[in-house]
């Protein structure tokens, strides 16, 4: 008993500091000097460093040659701008259609290891021998984002950078073939930018806002009130709460499931649920 507790506390102490990742971050700092702007370590889990745009390629080359990070995972971009159209999934109204409240404008946050600009580029590199990886990110200019190509270091970056270019409108300097990868040739705009308008939203509000089913909170409340009523057993209790939450569900269930062999028992349970209500 005491031994297992000791082991647990030892493990917790162990992940408080992460010597391996700190050594990697230190190596980057030594190599890049002022080019390393910030670093963020989640002990035992992850390492993120932020470099300036000029150190983007040399950081990748250093990671590949000196740190053994020979596996190139991806290059991606991110647009940190809070959506001018709001988070429609949580909104009571569709802000595209109804307009947005002024006081609800959000501050721009730039995630771990910080940032000064709206656009950032990410690359993820991994060492298949040390089983450790690093995320390198850099700030891109707001008005005309541009980044140097990584193809000289990792040839596999080619298509990633084409996607970065078409989705965010980032100019990849030195890329040999910067055509659109996924989008149709005549597509206009950069769809993963937050201010890219979705035309369908202008015509029609998000249908999910007018959901005909009850919200989960309402269902839970109904369940609790039904549980308060006396029930004969566990199995019937589950069925009774189902029957009580919506009146239509019990009759519907009985009619559709009547053809199956379980139909009889379902019918009986839902009838019990109605009497309990």
């Amino acid at each position: 008993m005491s031994t297992t507790e000791d082991v647990a506390t030892e493990q917790e102490e162990e992940v408080e500091t992460d010597a391996v990742r700190e050594a990697i971050a230190g190596a980057f700092a030594e190599h890049l000097g002022d080019g390393l702007l910030d670093q963020h370590i989640v002990p035992g889990r992850d390492l993120t460093i932020r470099v300036d745009a000029g150190s983007w390629v040399s950081a990748a080359r250093f990671a590949r040659d000196r740190l053994g990070m020979t596996w190139f995972d991806f290059v991606a971009g991110i647009d940190w701008l809070p959506s001018p159209f709001g988070r429609e999934m949580e909104a009571e109204q569709d802000w595209v259609v109804h307009g947005r409240d002024e006081q609800e404008t959000e501050e721009m946050s730039t995630g771990v290891a910080g940032g000064d600009s709206r656009f950032q580029a990410f690359m993820r590199l991994h060492s298949t021998e040390e089983h450790i990886g690093v995320t390198i990110k850099t700030d891109l200019a707001n008005d005309a984002p541009a980044i140097d190509t990584l193809i000289a270091v990792y040839p596999g970056a080619n298509w990633h950078e084409r996607e970065l270019s078409e989705m965010f409108g980032v100019d990849v300097v030195g890329h040999p073939d910067l055509r659109a990868l996924y989008l149709p040739t005549d597509f206009e705009g950069n769809p993963l930018r937050k201010d890219f308008p979705l035309v369908a939203r202008r015509v029609k509000p998000w249908p999910g806002i007018v959901d005909v089913e009850g919200m989960p909170e309402e269902e839970e409340a109904a369940d609790e009130s039904a549980e308060a009523a006396p029930a004969t057993g566990d199995s019937t209790q589950g069925a009774s709460t189902e029957g009580a939450s919506t009146e239509g569900a019990s009759t519907e269930g009985a009619s559709t499931e009547g053809v199956s062999t379980e139909g009889a028992s379902t019918e009986g349970e839902s009838a019990e649920g109605e009497s309990a209500e």
């Binding site: 705009g189 769809p191 979705l198 369908a200 029609k204």
Partner: peptide, 13 residues
């Protein structure tokens, strides 16, 4: 009709 991708930039409705 486009289904769950009804407002996507890339899906035909």
């Amino acid at each position: 009709c486009g289904g769950p991708y009804w407002d996507s930039y890339s899906v035909t409705k």
